[in-house]
Amino acid sequence: MAIFADSSTRVVVQGITGRDGSFHTRQMMEYGTKIVAGVTPGKGGQKFDDEVPIFNTVEEAVEETGANASVIYVPARFAAEAICEAADSGVELVVCISEGIPVLDMLRATRYVRDHGSRLIGPNCPGMISPGETKLGIIPGQIVEKGPIGVISRSGTLTYEVVWALTQAGLGQSSCIGIGGDPVIGTSFIDCLEAFENDSSTGAVVLIGEIGGTDEQNAASYVKEHMSKPVVGFVAGQTAPPGRRMGHAGAIISGSAGTAEEKIDTFRENGVEVAERPAEMPKILSKVMNG
């Protein structure tokens, strides 16, 4: 068991012939991901590495191969449209790795995905991995291990750091989800928390946040109200400078400065234990899981 994707997930890669797309498709196949199709408009009929059929459109790929998930590596200016195309073709899980998508485009794309009943992870994220089952994205396969910890994170390399610390301490993972660092994303901390709560293979959850916004605060109250499984948090950016903030709209809309301190306090007030540094995470997890 895992959340969102497992060994049965059939994956189409959008942008499979690009530099990043081809490199990471090979990495995913090596990990055991079922890559059933690729999409590059104009290259339909060809094969990727003599093995994976390439289609001009996602719709054809889905019809011909039964793909039910997609991973997107296309350049930023095509990425929002690629997300919509996947959703329109009935793909249930869309993972968008591409970074640099204008936020105004994402407002439309996230709405579109929701209206079509699909789930979007990202954009600007490392994707997800369910150790021993499948990986959709770019999380290095060698740092994970199958086990009971669910991991949710807004960042990339910081996720690797924490996951690697868990693996070294013998704490394997059920699924690791990088939800992405952009202001507007498809899947929130809360969506992942809900999925982990309902996943029988997950015993505890690690939530890696950072400064900015109020996602962590909202996640903290969700944990208090709806989670029976223990959650341990980490927030990066305690030493980040307050900056030369321009305009008042941000503070008015959220009623919050989004500082690490505020997030850590909210975690603790809602029963989420907080690791002060990544290396401390395994010890706290072991404690809350045995307590």
């Binding site: 990339g156 750091e161 660092g181 950072e210 990066a236 305690q238 030493t239 980040a240 540094r277």
Partner: peptide, 28 residues
């Protein structure tokens, strides 16, 4: 490399009694 890890590194510098001189993310 990476903004999240960069911030976590700065935090750790502070945790061990130092002060970071900068934030620098060399990217992907």
């Amino acid at each position: 490399n990476g903004a999240g890890l960069a911030m976590a590194t700065m935090d750790l510098v502070k945790y061990y009694g130092g002060e970071p001189a900068n934030f620098l993310d060399i990217g992907g």
